[in-house]
Design a protein around this nucleic acid. Structure first.
Lengths: 188, 188
DNA sequence: CAGCGGCGAGAACGATCGTTCTCACCCGCT
DNA sequence: AGCGGGTGAGAACGATCGTTCTCGCCGCTG
């Protein structure tokens, strides 16, 4: 019963439930029974549901972006291929069982209007993602505007994949990104 | 108190509230007091909250797509400019006060996992939008794949504009769409 | 050994929400 | 005039949820 283990057990359960069913839909009791922890422990570690939601989003943001960066780094390819690797990673994500879109967009749609914390977490996540993609595209010799356009393609692919349940948008977005990159770096 | 007038008053209030604050956040009583209708009338016309939500999404889908199509038709320009007009219309939408992203993506994030009706409505809406955009791009001489890519750009612009509160994504997506169109129709 | 502080399990509380019911009232018909 | 059916306003009901409290138990300290 060390409190560190309980913390991650709780966060694991909360992530499964919040991401899979929505935040408002799952009650604290569901988190408790899924994590096997007692209700008192849960409230000791996360004094309110808002705190738990914030911790869930924070950890998911860090993991998501670290996973993407690790994949891109592992390709070790040329700058242009590193940009396109983002979409390969997205395809893999889309095909994971239980994929249900971007946790931050979902959370924003659900609570963005009523919870400033959730709205801010979603904004930070997208900001960091845009910054990361723009870093990749400028390394490939494209202007910053191209980075934002590539990020828009990724964004659209994520929500479209979630709605349609297909991973095809990853490939379509990837092809569009390649076209954009080539159109803009050809003048080197 | 004709029932037709009550119906639209209720739907107007429901749209304001559901879109502005989220579906689960607003109770039937809020819809009642905002519409000025009695609770009994409300349940006569919409026997359950799910029915009201469905009607809200249905009407919003029809209005949204009709507004877009009317704008594009009013430009009356060449096929290529008709595609780009979509993004001009999006910019105008983004700048409306109270803009909070796509009602269907928000609803899907909130209830997609628990309400098959909401999920289906969101899917139909995006399908119709993709079909419309693809129609515009094929009229401009581009293959169907380009249509889907342009739609992905629009999709990404919508959610990014909602999160950042800026209408800039409309312009960035528009420029990217122009590039895609030109790259693909140059070989005419 | 006696007492005490913390823990697990779950009941309890107060608020909210979707939905239905009560009750007084008014309208049109005979 | 009298009556029945529908209406408006809001109370009431049952369920759920976030949060806290109770109670019995265990291990530690003097």
């Amino acid at each position: 019963m060390d409190s560190e283990g309980a913390r991650t057990r709780i966060l694991d359960a909360a992530e499964d439930l919040f991401y899979g069913r929505g935040i408002q839909t799952v009650g604290m009791d569901a988190v408790r029974s899924a994590s096997g922890v007692t209700l008192r422990r849960l409230y000791q570690l996360f004094p309110s549901k808002g705190d738990l939601v914030e911790a869930y989003l924070l950890r998911r943001d860090a993991r998501w972006r670290a996973g993407l960066a690790a994949y891109v780094d592992a390709t070790g390819a040329a700058p242009r291929e590193r940009v396109l690797a983002v979409f390969d990673w997205l395809r893999g994500w889309f095909e994971e069982p239980g994929f249900r879109g971007c946790a931050f967009i979902n959370g924003f749609g659900e609570l963005g209007a009523t919870s400033p914390e959730v709205a801010a977490a979603a904004r930070r996540h997208k900001e960091e993602f845009f910054r990361y993609v723009t870093g990749l595209t400028t390394a490939a010799g494209a202007p910053a505007a191209t980075g934002r356009q590539v990020a828009l393609l990724a964004e659209g692919a994520i929500t479209t994949a979630a709605l349609t349940g297909s991973s095809a948008p990853a490939g379509e977005a990837r092809a569009a990104a390649a076209l954009l990159l080539d159109a803009v770096t050809a003048r080197r």
